[in-house]
Amino acid sequence: MADYLNLAGWLAALAQTVLFVAIAPLFANWVKRAKCTLQNRRPPPWLQPYRDLRRLFGKEVVLAHTASHVFRIAPYIVFGTAVLAASIIPFILAEIPFAAMADAIVLVGTLALGRFFLALAGLDVGTSFGGMGSSREMTFAALAEPAMLMVVFTLAMLASSTNLSTVVGFFLEQPLALRPSLLFGLLALLLVGIAETGRIPVDNPATHLELTMIHEAMILEYTGRHLALMEYASQLKLAIYAVLTVNLFLPWGISRTLDPASVGIAVLALTAKLAVLGALLALAETLVAKMRLFRVPTFLAVAFTLSLIGMLSFIMLEGH
């Protein structure tokens, strides 16, 4: 793989990953601000999530008596897998060498690894809350992950590649056409993204007091830098799903070279796409009420069915 030996490509990919990780809290805050504005509340300042993270990193870590090593390693693994996942997604540059190291299936696997440890951490202390969160998280993930894989497979079959860079490149070269498989895939990915990042109507990121909470229940025992890492990882996950959605299905504007002008256009295009998606998410969260817990499987079954229909419609209608 001679073309993967150029240093500039690796450095650019690394820089892009750093940028991705750096702006993830900003995107989460953008959604929050949009929601506040829609609900007539005063929005937090733009830099609030960074201040929160700094405050948490500075605080002392307190462990429960029953916490084991798994509890202490989990934040690092959860955060690490989120960063790894962020590094293999085409963000501003389409052609990145990391995408060849780990393809779309590895991306799903990496996120699953993080979730595995997140759920173990929830069970580690031995409280009912933690177990409740883990049990629900793993149940919903068991339904969301196959749906996500089906979306990935539809794209992979379309572009004859599971390499995310290649997939994005393929869509850029295609003439604009409405493909039913992509439409179903997009819908499925949106539903999966909502479930996986714990947004309304599946989970409520703003609450700590409901028996229906999922993500917050698992990290209830975390403090200090551990909590900071967990919060950061969940913000990163939101950004990952958002970037994945906009860059896979609406890749226009993404830069295929390291040329400053096209990179500038890519930054602007991505900002605009993410801003719209974030606003839509905020709007949806304002309009929709949280679902009863046992309605969530139906929600995810819809996502799974949509993704399967997307794949079958590609095979039946568009294949060959």
Partner: peptide
């Protein structure tokens, strides 16, 4: 595959943690 991960979170979490 996803259900297997759920199952082994259960096994490990219940047997070794807590």
């Amino acid at each position: 595959g996803a259900l297997a991960a759920t199952c082994f979170v259960k096994v490990y979490g219940v047997a070794f943690l807590g």
